[in-house]
Every structure is written in structure tokens, then in C-alpha cells.
């Protein structure tokens, strides 16, 4: 079981990513990490994968809208969103087919239960074995819980991604955490998508997914495509 990111030039350099790989995506604020995460999920969806997206910054409805507005032709029943925002804002929204509500970003137990419920639905009921888990973002979770707690949570779920040959993508804000936090969390991941730059001039590369890091590429997000230059 293998995966691609859906970033064409980078995929050519990396080759197939084997099932069970956990990737940290780290980059500065406003560098388009939300879009890149969704595009990686989208690339799976058009290939009949399922996607579980844990959203800690945007209400689940907004994430679903992203796919509905941009990504025509994907099977909506393959999308599962764990919404950690809506109930924190005081809105008592019930679970829907696509969106399951966690109480808050503190509620790692609840987040874990909702992720597991989507895994069960995709694996057992829909027989979809290729699933992408995207957590966007760990930084929000780290604002509410200490490093050790988040590490324990990730230890469990990166393990499950590995055991089930899924692909895991975990977003983290650059510059928001100390070195110890990043170094500690890195232990859990097999590779990294790194973003650098400022003022709208950003570059991207992948580390640990191929024998050598890819070169830095300038990039632009165009709908559901990430266009690399250089």
C-alpha cells in the first residue's frame, strides 16, 4: 500500500510513500499549510482513499466547504472531519455523517474516539483500506495540553496509522514552540514537509521521505493544485 502527496514534482523525487508513514508538516503562519493539508487529503480522495481531518482551528463545516467548493467529483462519504472548534465556541451542533464533534482541543479522549469511529467506518463498513489522517494542527492542541500529554496521544495514533498502513500528516506552526517540543515530537514521525519564507514568498521541501531531502521549491497554491517552481 503506497501513497503520494499530490504535489507533482515532489512526488516524482520522493517516489511512493509506503503505508504507515507519519509526516510532520512544519511552516510559518500564513504559508498555506491548511490548503496544503487539504490538498494532500484531496489527492487521496480522488484516488478513492478516505480522509480523516482533525480540525482544531476551523469549524468542521468550513473544512467541508473547502472540499465542496473546490474539489468537485470527490466522494463526500469518504471524508470524516473531527471538529474541535464548534463546541468550544458554545454552539451545540450534533454529529453529522461527515463531521463529528469533539468537546474542545483539550478533549484528547474525545478526539481519539471520533478518529477511531471514522477509521472503523472507513475500514470495516466501507472497506476502504487507504486512509489519510490529517491533524491540523498540533500547535492548537499544544496550547491547551502539555508536551507529554500530546506526545502520549500522538504515540497512540501514529502507532495506529502505522499498524493500519495509513498515511498521517500532522501540522505544526513554526516559531510557536521551543526546540525541545519540536525535537520531542519529531521522534514520532518518519518524515517532514518543511516550509520556509515570509511575506508571501514561501518555499517547500520534503525531508526523510527519500534518501536525500528534496530541493527547496517556490510554490503557489492554485485551487486543488500546488504548483512548484524551480
Amino acid at each position: 500500500m503506497t501513497y503520494n502527496l499530490g504535489i507533482s514534482k515532489m512526488d516524482e523525487l520522493i517516489g511512493d510513500i509506503k503505508g504507515g508513514t507519519n509526516i510532520m508538516m512544519i511552516g510559518p503562519p500564513m504559508s498555506g499549510k491548511d490548503d496544503i493539508t487539504n490538498i494532500i487529503a484531496y489527492h487521496g480522495l480522488i484516488n478513492k482513499n478516505a480522509a480523516v481531518i482533525v480540525s482544531t482551528r476551523e469549524p468542521g463545516k468550513n473544512v467541508l466547504d473547502w472540499f465542496e467548493n473546490r474539489a468537485l467529483g470527490i466522494p463526500p462519504e469518504h471524508i470524516g472531519i473531527v471538529d474541535c472548534v464548534t463546541r468550544t465556541l458554545g454552539f451545540g451542533a450534533p454529529d453529522t455523517e461527515n463531521i463529528k464533534m469533539a468537546s474542545s482541543p483539550v478533549d484528547l479522549t474525545g478526539i481519539g474516539v471520533k478518529i477511531s469511529q471514522f477509521f472503523e467506518r472507513f475500514w470495516m463498513e466501507m472497506q476502504i483500506k487507504e486512509t489519510r489522517l490529517c491533524i491540523n494542527s498540533l500547535s492548537t492542541i499544544l496550547m491547551y495540553s502539555n508536551l507529554q500529554t500530546v506526545f502520549r496521544f500522538l504515540h497512540v495514533f501514529t502507532g495506529r496509522v502505522k499498524a493500519a498502513n495509513m498515511l498521517g500528516v500532522y501540522v505544526i506552526e513554526d516559531g510557536m514552540h521551543d526546540d525541545k517540543t519540536i525535537v520531542t515530537l519529531k521522534q514520532l514521525f518518519d518524515g517532514m514537509i518543511e516550509i520556509r519564507g515570509d511575506d508571501g514568498d514561501y518555499q517547500i521541501r520534503a525531508i526523510g521521505l527519500s534518501p536525500k531531502p528534496t530541493p527547496w521549491f517556490d510554490y503557489e497554491i492554485d485551487g486543488v493544485n500546488i504548483v512548484l517552481r524551480g
Binding site: R87, T88, G110
Partner: peptide, 11 residues
Amino acid sequence: TSSTDPRMIRD
């Protein structure tokens, strides 16, 4: 409660 807003608990 320790991870949920009390209003949400009632919901």
C-alpha cells in the same frame, strides 16, 4: 467536567 464546557455537557 474537565475537558468540556458545562453547557455542552447538558447538550
